[in-house]
Amino acid sequence: MGKTLDLGHRVEIQPMDKHCHDISLGLYQQEFDGSPHYLVHTYSSAEAAPERVAFIRQAMVTMLGMEANAAQPEWFRFSCGDRHEKAAKRAFLDLCKLASGSPLEPKACTNFDKKADCDLSITGTTEGIYRASAAAETDASTRRIGALIRGFIKVCEMLPVDDSESDLRFTCGGLHNEMVGMLLFRAQNVRSAMQEDAASAGRGSLAPPSQQ
């Protein structure tokens, strides 16, 4: 009799958690009542593993503004009922970099941008539109707002609004301020996020000697 569990679709994995005995942490996805839910799971029987899983789960809930399923609290979802899978995957990998016990507080939607040399902000409106702005109006900050918008489109699968160069929205039409705050830094530095993804995808694949 096998010991693996039917946890649905594994969407992401942290293969070696440096904060907990190198255990692997998986992010799983399954639908309950037509709504995609997520679960953090490890197959490790390390003593510290349950506490670590609980911390990452709480980090996902707090830092992304997700909510636990009432009947199965280990599963959690976005309140809009949408999948937002790419954002969840990216945030999961980033949150696994936090040591257990780190303070968990949603991040602000404003961050200093070195290339713009000023703060960049992204603000949600009641119509579900997010607008990016810079604290100083310069050519550099205008370029960086464009880069930020493109970054959010890649990192969070957000959509541009009409022909605007500073507005975008989520596919669900809702507001996800916690997610936007959490991934603002990644949207500012989308190339490094993609490089990290590419490096991690190659690691763990066995190449024949001729390609090593």
Partner: peptide, 15 residues
């Protein structure tokens, strides 16, 4: 050839 994965390593404590 191998079908080992990091999750299976965790499952049986054989990294």
């Amino acid at each position: 050839t191998s079908v080992a994965t990091v999750e299976l390593m965790d499952l049986v404590g054989a990294n």
